[in-house]
Design a protein around this nucleic acid. Structure first.
Length: 509
RNA sequence: GGGCCUCUAGCUCAACGGCAGAGCAACGGACUCUUAAUCCGCAGGUUCAGGGUUCGAAUCCCUGGGGGCCCA
């Protein structure tokens, strides 16, 4: 790996430190205070009137990255940033000593991690600062940070080198900190309600639980094909057969499909299941869950997504899929049980759908093209056609539809839920129907999972289940337009060999 | 998979057929309360790659690569 001129200059500075017996990468830091704790210390002493000659009496040590550096002759002002904030260092030649001062001037750069010891005071401009008695190197950075005012703008670099994006752009740091709070709030919500967090296989001998194409891999010792899970559903339901009443899992799922602003091949899913529940109860829980999360992030029940104010106060409105499609297109899909017939009606209404599309997918397209864009405020679309939902239980009064709902917020689908199908023979029949779709060329149709049917034969209690796409929820709550902006390291095409030193050509097949 | 856009110094961006430039960062210097510090000086390029058109290409055309947006 060849160093650029700028990197070479910094490497030489690290060497210069070493030559003088100073470690450019010392093993340990001796921080006594975070920047946040230091600011609090000063403010509380100031308020209590215990400052000595307007300085704190206590000597403290801060550690952080140099993010600004202003040299004024025999004085340097610099800001360091740690994980809690920033604080200004005031470094005087007559305080730190001539040799150390020269080191700081000549050998320290923007981006380096340093440690500074001294006491706190306010500058003439009123900024709480550390009057440094010593400043020492913690980590010599060889790469200069991106431009200080504009940050890192290049989207490709922001994704490929997220570390540079994070260190340059406060907004990016904020998005991912919020993401963490969201996930944490979800766990608290479910833990408080007696849900057990579990872990089910990522590598599955048979995939299922959703309509999608899987990633396929191979276990050498077993000499067997495994699939990366596309959903957790069938394993979590097996746990209800085993007697757990409430379980949830927050996990990475993988779907081998295109990448766009709403799809990532690797994404995070929350699924939770509740024995003796049904979709009515699950709707109430979803409303409460989302409200709790919004409250955690925004402190209230409203937020703005892409310019639209959204209010998640329960109860959310509910509308059958049948009504929603009829209202927007005038099409009553129950009057068109034949795919060709429904396709003709859909096209007449202005839908753009390929010839040969199977009936359930036509209904899905009508939903996507005509209904979804209007669903800004939270709403549950309920009662989907049986053909669209092979794992959901039929409505008692209408066996052509199932008890299923999808929550929509901000024009996007954030989840999927049903009263779970627990009749093993019905489930087997649905799998068989899926198999027919598969053979007809629908690559996303589910394979038959006989072990799952066997589990249901032991009996799964009436159950309500929900899946929520965490990434899409985070998009909404951080006002991001692209899924990639809420995923730390989004999947990218590998760069041509020279820069990545890619392993032996593994891109054939 | 298709259409459109994009790739220039470490970073942020100009130059759009006629000498490849600025700001930040760097490097040398002045400055002991600065806040995108200021001031003086200096250096920095395979203009994504390859080919073509042209007296002359970062610029126009073709092929390929990376990325983005829209569509499927």
């Amino acid at each position: 790996m060849e160093l650029s001129d700028l990197q070479e200059i910094r490497r030489a500075k690290a060497e210069a430190l070493r030559d003088r017996g100073i470690a450019p990468y010392p093993t340990r830091a001796e921080r006594t205070h975070t920047t946040k704790a230091a600011l609090e210390l000063f403010t509380s002493e100031e308020e209590a009137g215990t400052l000595h000659d307007s300085h704190t009496g206590e000597t403290i040590t801060l550690a952080g990255r140099i993010v600004s550096f202003r040299h004024m002759g025999k004085t340097v002002f610099a800001h360091i940033r740690d994980g809690f904030g920033e604080l200004q260092l005031y470094i005087r030649k007559d305080v730190v000593g001539e040799a150390a001062y020269t080191d700081i001037l000549k050998l320290f750069d923007l981006g380096d991690f340093v440690q500074a010891t001294g006491d706190l005071f306010r500058t003439k401009m009123g900024e709480i600062s550390l009057r440094a008695r010593s400043v020492t190197m913690l980590t010599k950075a060889l790469n200069a940070p991106p431009e200080k005012w504009h940050g890192l703008q290049d989207v490709e670099l922001r994704y490929r080198q997220r570390y540079a994006d994070l260190l340059a752009n406060a907004e990016t740091r904020k998005v991912f900190a919020t993401r963490s709070r969201i996930v944490s709030a979800i766990r608290h919500f479910l833990d408080d309600r007696g849900y057990l967090e579990v872990e089910t296989p990522v590598l599955q001998p048979l995939y299922g639980g959703a309509a999608a194409r899987p990633f396929t891999t191979h276990h050498n010792t077993l000499d067997q094909t495994f699939y990366l899970r596309i959903a957790d559903e069938l394993y979590l339901k097996r746990l209800l057969v085993g007697g757990f009443e409430r379980v949830y899992e927050i996990s990475k799922d993988f779907r081998n499909e295109g990448i766009d602003r709403n799809h990532s091949p690797e994404f995070t899913m929350l699924e939770f299941y509740q024995a003796y529940g049904d979709y009515e109860q699950m709707m109430e829980i979803v409303e409460q869950l989302i409200s709790a999360v919004v409250k955690e992030v925004y402190g209230g029940s409203t937020f703005v997504y892409q310019g639209n104010e959204i209010d998640v106060t329960p109860p959310w409105s509910r509308k059958t899929l049948w009504d929603a499609i009829r209202e927007r297109t005038g099409i009553d899909y129950t009057e068109h049980p034949d795919a060709d017939d429904l396709l003709a009606a859909a096209r007449k209404a202005g839908a753009d759908i390929e010839t040969g599309t199977v009936w359930p997918r036509i209904v899905d397209e009508l939903l996507k093209q005509f209904v979804r864009p209007h669903l800004l405020q939270p709403i549950f679309l309920i009662d989907y056609p049986l053909e669209l939902s092979p794992l959901a239980k039929r409505k008692p009064d209408d066996p052509t539809h199932v008890e299923r709902f999808q929550p929509y917020i901000g024009g996007g689908e954030v989840g999927n839920a049903f009263t779970e199908l627990n009749d093993p023979m019905d489930q087997l029949q649905r799998f068989i129907e899926q198999q027919k779709d598969r053979e007809a060329g629908d690559e996303e149709a589910m394979p038959i999972d006989e072990d799952f049917v066997n589990a249901l034969m032991y009996g799964m209690p009436p159950t309500g289940g929900v899946g929520i796409g965490i990434d899409r929820l985070v998009m909404l709550l951080t006002d991001q337009a692209t899924l990639r902006d809420v995923i730390l390291f989004p999947a990218m095409r590998r760069l041509p060999a020279s820069s990545t030193e890619a392993g032996s050509g593994d891109d054939d097949q």
